[in-house]
Design a protein around this nucleic acid. Structure first.
Length: 397
DNA sequence: TCTGGGGTCCTAGGACCC
DNA sequence: TCTGGGGTCCTAGGACCC
């Protein structure tokens, strides 16, 4: 077995993913600036990025920056298929794969015969040859360092951070490179003259906690001092599922809004059932002309995947939000389903006076399920709340 | 620079319970 | 009757990520 000295985590990140898929599938686009998406830029090829085009930029601005760019509409199913193929290569490399999004994942390669660097070289070659997409890989001792390394190595690169070179690598980086530091946090820190990771590392934790709150403060302090004990986790399941629609500037009638809500609920209900899950919390998302946002949510007593039940709840939320919407221009309407559970779960009713958080009631209920469905049926029990009893999935989550 | 669609996690207050 | 400390759940908002 190869002894790596600890740098065994890979962060693999496809480059300009949507745009690369378009260039792969249409040779005429290769070597040319490509923008995916119309209203806003969903992805830009590196040829387009050279002109300053960035993800999430308005389409008009992007076209001004790069008039030669070819703008193509997104083909989500093609990206989804490409993603599946790439993840298959990941899983053939190691079973310890943690997906982060459609185009990136962590791989723990400790204990493999080859060195992590060899594994990374081979992985990049396989993705290029078998799937036809460029991918960048960062290799380091921790997830955080591996992710930073891939960010630095982009595009189409490979960077190994050796365990004895971590601080040297980390300290000069701008704070924005820290995972979890966005614009708001970076601006807060800049007001205190803190601009590099080294600057953050030299601050006392208490100062960061005062500035950013206990969660973010402690997290950032640890990362800046190169402490990141998080393991690569497999089998992480999604915790919410959402769909939304931008409305543009035009005013929409209540009937139009309702029709959109019906469409969104229909789409989500289908996705929910396809994923064999049920939800308990329905959240309505709104955005206004001035980009102010609002959410309204409701938690059901019983988890459901029923379109009618979800629609009824969503309509109630929209009706409750009507006064807030008033005459303000609504520019986005969306719905998010949270509190997701496995749909094969059996909801166990517990005797009224039994508290499910106490062991006896749970044991009794679980025994009942075993009698009905077999002793190997139960893998995990989900407590839904004091009055809802237990949700017990019959198959692995 | 005026903005899409999909997610994650944290915080804070109030209700309620022991 | 008044009081403390600890916990969970729900709701709303915010920051961040790709």
């Amino acid at each position: 077995m190869f002894v790596s000295g600890g740098a065994t985590i890979l962060h693999a990140d496809l480059d300009a993913f949507y745009a690369s898929v378009e260039q792969r599938d249409d040779p005429g686009l290769r070597g040319r600036p490509v923008i995916v998406g119309g209203g806003v830029v969903l992805a830009a090829s590196y040829e387009a990025k050279a002109y300053g085009v960035r993800t999430a930029m308005g389409g008009g601005q992007a076209r001004r920056l790069c008039p030669r760019a070819v703008v193509v509409p997104p083909r989500m199913s093609a990206y989804s298929a490409a993603s599946k193929a790439v993840f298959a290569v990941f899983r053939a490399t190691t079973p310890l794969v943690e997906g982060l999004s459609i185009d990136e994942a962590f791989l723990d390669v400790h204990g493999l015969r080859r060195s992590p660097e060899d594994v990374a070289v081979r992985l990049r070659r396989e993705v290029a040859e078998e799937i036809g997409l460029p991918i960048t890989v960062g290799v380091a001792r921790t997830k955080f360092l591996a992710k930073v390394a891939s960010g630095v190595a982009k595009p189409d690169g490979l960077l190994v951070v050796p365990p004895d070179g971590e601080l040297e690598f980390l300290r000069p980086l701008p704070v924005r490179r820290l995972w979890g530091v966005g614009r708001a946090t970076a601006e807060k820190l800049a007001r205190f003259g803190v601009t590099t990771v080294g600057d953050v590392a030299d601050m006392p934790e208490s100062t960061l906690v005062t500035l950013l709150g206990p969660g973010a403060g402690r997290h950032l302090h640890a990362l800046a001092r190169n402490r990141d004990p998080r393991p690569v986790r497999t089998g992480v399941r999604r915790r919410s599922m959402g769909s939304q629609r931008a409305l543009g500037r035009r005013r929409r009638s209540p009937a139009e809004l309702d029709a959109m809500l019906v469409g969104i609920v229909d789409r989500l209900g289908g996705r929910l059932r396809k994923a064999r899950r049920v939800c308990r919390t329905v959240t309505l998302r709104l955005r206004f002309e001035d980009f102010a946002r609002a959410t309204r949510s409701h938690t059901l007593a019983q988890a459901t995947d029923d379109t009618e039940r979800i629609l009824e709840t969503a309509r109630g939320l929209l009706a409750a939000a009507a006064p807030m919407i008033g005459t303000r221009g609504l520019t986005l309407i969306g719905l998010s389903l949270g509190n997701l559970h496995d749909d094969r779960a059996v909801q166990l009713a517990l005797p009224f006076d039994e508290d499910p958080s106490k062991g006896g009631a749970v044991d009794g209920a679980v025994d009942g399920v075993r009698e009905r469905f077999g002793s190997s049926a139960i893998t995990r029990a989900v407590l839904l709340g004091r009055d809802q009893g237990l949700s017990v999935p019959l198959l692995p989550d």
